[in-house]
Lab assay of single mutants.
Amino acid sequence: MSIQHFRVALIPFFAAFCLPVFAHPETLVKVKDAEDQLGARVGYIELDLNSGKILESFRPEERFPMMSTFKVLLCGAVLSRVDAGQEQLGRRIHYSQNDLVEYSPVTEKHLTDGMTVRELCSAAITMSDNTAANLLLTTIGGPKELTAFLHNMGDHVTRLDRWEPELNEAIPNDERDTTMPAAMATTLRKLLTGELLTLASRQQLIDWMEADKVAGPLLRSALPAGWFIADKSGAGERGSRGIIAALGPDGKPSRIVVIYTTGSQATMDERNRQIAEIGASLIKHW
Rank of each mutant, 00 (worst) to 15 (best):
S68I: 01
D231G: 10
I93H: 15
T69V: 09
L49Y: 11
G39N: 05
W163E: 09
G239M: 11
R189D: 03
D113V: 02
I54N: 06
L219Q: 10
F228W: 07
L135S: 07
E237D: 09
M268S: 10
A84M: 08
E46L: 15
G90K: 09
D36R: 07
E61N: 05
D36Q: 02
Q37V: 04
S201M: 15
I243P: 00
I229W: 04
N168L: 13
R81E: 04
F70R: 02
R202Y: 03
E195A: 12
T186C: 11
E169C: 05
A40F: 11
D161P: 00
K190T: 11
G85F: 11
G226S: 12
S57H: 07
A235L: 14
K30T: 14
I244T: 15
K144T: 05
V72W: 01
I243Q: 13
L111I: 04
M209P: 00
E195M: 15
I256F: 03
V106D: 15
E210S: 13
G39D: 08
F58A: 09
R81W: 12
Q86Y: 15
L223N: 12
G216H: 07
D161V: 05
R59E: 13
Y260Q: 06
H151I: 10
T179I: 03
L160K: 03
W208G: 04
S104E: 01
H156A: 11
P105C: 05
L196S: 12
K53D: 12
L28K: 05
L47Q: 14
K190N: 11
V78L: 14
G43W: 01
V258I: 13
I206T: 12
P181S: 03
A280Y: 05
T107W: 02
D129E: 01
A266G: 06
L223F: 13
D207W: 12
M268D: 13
D48L: 03
Q37R: 08
D161F: 04
Q37I: 12
R202K: 04
G234D: 00
T179C: 01
P249C: 04
R118W: 13
I54C: 04
G226P: 06
K71G: 00
D99H: 07
I93E: 15
I45A: 12
S221F: 02
G234W: 00
E35A: 10
P253N: 07
G263K: 13
Y260E: 01
D129Y: 00
F58N: 14
V72M: 02
I171H: 15
N134D: 08
L218C: 04
G248Y: 06
G154I: 08
S96A: 07
V214C: 14
V78Q: 15
R241T: 12
D155Q: 04
S201T: 08
G226L: 11
A40T: 08
G39V: 07
R59W: 13
A225I: 04
S104P: 11
A183Q: 08
T139M: 09
A246W: 11
T147F: 02
L73I: 03
P224Q: 08
L197Q: 02
A211V: 15
S57F: 08
G239E: 09
G194S: 12
K144C: 03
H24F: 04
S80P: 02
L55E: 04
T261Y: 14
F64V: 05
E62V: 02
K109D: 05
V257E: 13
N98C: 09
Q203W: 02
I256H: 01
T69D: 01
A185T: 05
T187E: 09
G239A: 10
M184Y: 05
A182E: 05
E270Q: 01
A246V: 09
L218T: 09
S57T: 05
L223V: 10
R220T: 12
L191I: 02
G52N: 14
V78P: 00
L219H: 06
D250E: 03
V31H: 01
L167F: 05
P224H: 12
F58C: 13
Q274M: 11
L111H: 10
I275R: 00
